[in-house]
Amino acid sequence: MMELLQLFITFFMIGLVSFGGGYAMIPLMQTEVVNRYQWLTLDQFTDVTAIAGMSPGPIAVNMAVSIGYMHKQLPGAVAATLGIIGPAFLCILVLAAFYKRMKNNRYWQGSMFGVRAAVTGFIVYSAIIFTKNNALFGANMWYTLSQLIIFGGSFIAIAYLKKHPVYVIAISGLVGIALYS
């Protein structure tokens, strides 16, 4: 029961500051889930990130479901999900009443300006630690080269060819099976 409460509280905290989407929350989640509470190992955490990116739904919520489930099965998944969507739910109910006034409030605008900029930094950092955690590049020449090609191909497909991330992930998986098994 204590553990479920801890899951709920942790993800509530993360939900409270989750501006800028799921990938921005990776550093925060890793700090809490891997370093502080050790619910998952680093490898498991990176895999959870990959699964969350492959599934429909917001990435942060997907990660909460998966981390909760891996730690404490279904009750854990429910606790973590309630935690991460709780703040959004409460905030909308409050904001709905004050929104018109808030929109033109200088402090609100200022803090949103700062938060957005900081959160961009979070996503950049996510990319850095994701590379580091996975040792994506390195091992040997051939491996590094193949990974760089997969990265470049995926990026072009998503950013320029506007392919749906799910197709890109599926194709990438097949390429991985062909190359690395």
Binding site: Y23, I26, T46, T49, A50, G53, M54, I123, S126, A127, F130, T131, N134, L136, Q147, I150, F151, S154, F155, I158, P165, V168, I169, S172, G173, V175, G176, I177, L179, Y180
Partner: peptide, 10 residues
Amino acid sequence: AIRTTILALI
């Protein structure tokens, strides 16, 4: 390979 694609998404 998928992890690398996720990196591209990030």
